[in-house]
Amino acid sequence: MTSADAPPHPAHRPSADAAPAPATPGKVAIWLFLATEIMFFTGLLGSYIVFRAGSPPTSYSNLYAPAAQLDRLKDARGVVLGAVGPDADGVAGAIASATGKGEAEVARILAAAPHGVVNGLDEKGAGELTAALGKLGAKAEAASLRTSNWPRPYDPLTNPLSIDLTTVNTFILICSSATMVLAVSAIQQGRKGRCSLFLLATLVLGGTFLGVQVFEYHELLEGRSYPIGISPTGHFTPEVSLFASCFFTVTGFHGLHVAAGVVTLAIVFLGSLLGRFSAQDFGAVEYAGLYWHFVDVVWILLFTIVYLI
């Protein structure tokens, strides 16, 4: 397999058992490194899992901020503002007069529509406010207190994460893993041009994943307004709840690993353009690939645990 491109396919391929992959110091070290990474993410994800499973059943609610004391509020009612309608000032005035909330707080409720939440009402107050808002052309409905021990997926009143977007993003990362392994496969066959091409594809896909995550962070941190059940400040920042702390730490450290992987891949890609690798010498591509796949595996688990469950 000395010629650079398009090697002849051997007629007979030995079975996997006949040709086990050789061990090199680099491969031993990269697998050891991955083992340490497994333990690092165990620390983060294990903490997430026990917090997810063990938080008290009243930690999150549709009407009050995370970790509010809810044990005496079982009869509390609220109003979910679906749409503000034409008369924003009137709506704000109605909410303020019904609840006595300050200007800033009311503005946050309006900004969070279609999931703005007005809390601090009893059954009668909630009915009256719903009716008043309806008269002003706003879309509103009364809601009773619903608690959960963790923000539930697909519940916009407690969970700000977009599953649709992230599902697509997950598949982008999986595709980058596939192009990575195709790059390794290409260089193993000595096809250097093909290897560079797939490395470039991996880089682009990995960069796209990172870009989407940066966009998601931006939306969460300042781009959008969220109801009180997600954050008392209207923005989803690390200090607003334990869920936010866990989410930003876990995905943030995964994102840092992806960024490190992208830098590594860029270096490997440049190396491949300079012709550093061949069918006999492709260690760097393989090790970068192993790391990249590991980051992918972590994301597959993380996506399921953090977003879907």
């Binding site: 397999m1 051997p10 391929r13 030995p14 079975s15 996997a16 006949a18 040709a19 086990p20 992959a21 050789p22 596939a178 392994v181 195709l182 390794v184 496969s185 290409a186 193993q188 066959q189 069918a279 006999q280 492709f282």
Partner: peptide
């Protein structure tokens, strides 16, 4: 090593 690389490179990715 070449044989192993050959096997790996033809997996049904």
């Amino acid at each position: 090593a070449a044989a192993a690389a050959d096997v790996e490179s033809h997996a049904p990715y």
